[in-house]
């Protein structure tokens, strides 16, 4: 009899075990930034504990507003705060920020290019709570809103840097959040995050893996395994779905025989769609294998079970990279 695996409550860590981790990188980065910039305020909709923003609240209690379970009002009030000179970082889960508060993000925030930063927990398959909590199509939805920057960071280092970049960016930002113990993939020393820029991590050859979010960590592990199998695999990390660094994607693809995309999101409307569009624009013909989530709601279950079942593990990237067109 196989071991029975149970769905865990909110708060599973992203740590895979292979890399060192940092606790609550978002909240600590925001608190550090808050000390430098008094115009930064924190907000949440009854998910402060589960979105790692409590370090900011503890440091600046008068600059923190818990709006209760009211995501429309979270975003509307954030817009009002922005209009009085503040830079709100508002946290909730991705499903609520996108599906429930969409009109407010579009009209109250993005239409006026207000500096509201939405930080969204439980991206893709990082919770076992099923379709109600798994934000599987959030970056697609948010990327359709004119003027909204959309970021899916890879690790603790990038989260901290992206928080700073988001605060400096004059317009609105939607950023996916990895919470709890978050792996360190990128060396923090000298790390810079530039909105709209892809990051070449490993030069390609036989296959180029284009990844976003935590799938980039898996892409790097997959590339190591592929190298052991005799395949030269490159990795291009694309943390910004919008603005999308089409040029970096095109140039990378030109140096690879075939492409694998990897995202913790439905493949339609996400990274894979953007990559295919970018390649076609320059007439670059490469086979594109898409690792990501299917066009369906996903059941409850333990996160490792779901990630295996829906094929977003290192094994799945390796398998896709091995397939020939």
């Amino acid at each position: 009899m196989t071991e029975r695996i149970f769905t865990r409550a909110m708060g599973i860590d992203e740590a895979s075990g292979a890399r060192r981790t940092v606790e609550a990188p978002f909240g600590h980065a925001l608190a550090a930034l808050g000390a430098e910039r008094p115009e930064i305020v924190g907000m949440t909709a009854d998910l402060g504990k589960y979105t790692d923003i409590l370090p900011f609240r503890d440091a600046f209690p008068s600059r923190f507003f818990n709006m209760g379970m009211a995501e429309q009002n979270l975003v509307a009030a954030a817009a009002g705060l922005a209009r009085t000179g503040f830079i709100p970082f508002a946290t909730t889960y991705g499903v609520f920020a996108s599906r429930r508060a969409y009109d407010f993000v579009a009209i109250a925030v993005a239409h006026s290019n207000l500096p509201v930063k939405i930080v969204a927990g439980l991206p893709g398959l990082t919770t076992g709570y099923g379709g109600t909590h798994q934000a599987i199509e959030d970056t697609g939805l948010m990327s359709l809103i004119p003027g909204l920057t959309v970021i899916d960071p890879c690790d603790a280092t990038e989260i901290a840097a992206a928080v700073r970049a988001a605060a400096e960016h004059p317009g609105p930002v939607y950023m996916r959040l990895l919470r709890g113990k978050v792996p360190v993939v990128f060396e923090p020393e000298g790390f810079r995050f530039e909105i709209g820029k892809a990051r070449l991590l490993r030069e390609g050859g036989d296959v180029g893996i284009i990844a976003t979010g935590f799938m980039t960590e898996r892409a790097l592990d997959a590339a190591d395994r592929l190298a052991a199998l005799g395949l030269a695999a490159g990795v291009l990390h694309v943390p910004c779905l919008k603005p999308f660094d089409a040029e970096a994607v095109q140039d990378f693809a030109l140096r690879c025989d075939r492409i694998v995309t990897a995202e913790n999101h439905v493949v339609r409307g996400g990274l894979a769609s953007l990559v295919v569009e970018a390649l076609h624009e320059r007439g670059i013909l490469r086979a594109v294998r898409r690792v990501g989530l299917p066009d369906r709601f996903i059941e409850c279950g333990a996160v490792p079970t779901l990630q295996k079942r829906y094929r977003i593990t290192v094994d799945d990237i390796v398998a896709s990279a091995e397939e020939r067109a």
Partner: peptide, 25 residues
């Protein structure tokens, strides 16, 4: 014009944010 009206149900929430911001300032 202080905010984009017309998508009804937007005004009071933005007013709340402004009132919080003005008080903080």
């Amino acid at each position: 014009v202080e905010m984009i009206g017309g998508s009804l149900g937007h005004g009071l929430g933005q007013a709340v944010g402004m009132a919080l911001g003005l008080r903080l300032a």
